[in-house]
Amino acid sequence: MNGTDDAHGTNDAHGTDDAHGMNGMNGGAAFDEDPAAAEPDGEDLDAELLEEELRRAAAVLDPLPPALLQTAVDAYALHDLDARVAELTFDSLVDAIPVRGAMDAPRMLTFSAGEVTVDVEVTGQGLMGQLLPPRPARIEVLGGPQPGAPLTADDMGRFTADTPPSGPFALRLRTGGDVVVTEWLRA
């Protein structure tokens, strides 16, 4: 990147930048406190101070909302030792070449856990999917740690929901003695 060269150029001439009262003074103080540090130049110190000031500004003006912190604390309930995680192996948003003109194409997702595959299609109207190899299953559409809406997969492993998931979602599938949960993602 060309810019990097510029940065070094300016850096070499940093002596002039340090001439701004406070920064120079702070630089001097730090020298006294930390003689072991090899040549901490004024610009590094100024950068440290500015970054720290910005960090405090972020804490005031754009902090992590407390409700979100709590949501993450509560998410511990999603730690499920008994379930197998079906990993996302295909996501049309990432892996598919968009079809020209098809702006609201359905989101196609494939999850895999060992021999089990779950194909899911999400549209504005709802969600449909198929469990492979085909088999009946009881399915929950999860939106968080709370119990989710129940669905049933027929003998062919097919299932549908009339409302699309909003926000984070996962499917918990129970089939035979097996519990499989799809990786959390956003619809």
Partner: peptide, 18 residues
Amino acid sequence: AHEVYQTVWFRFAQHLGR
């Protein structure tokens, strides 16, 4: 932003032992 934040933590909880 809120949904992505939640998704990240849900997934982390899910993968915790792995």
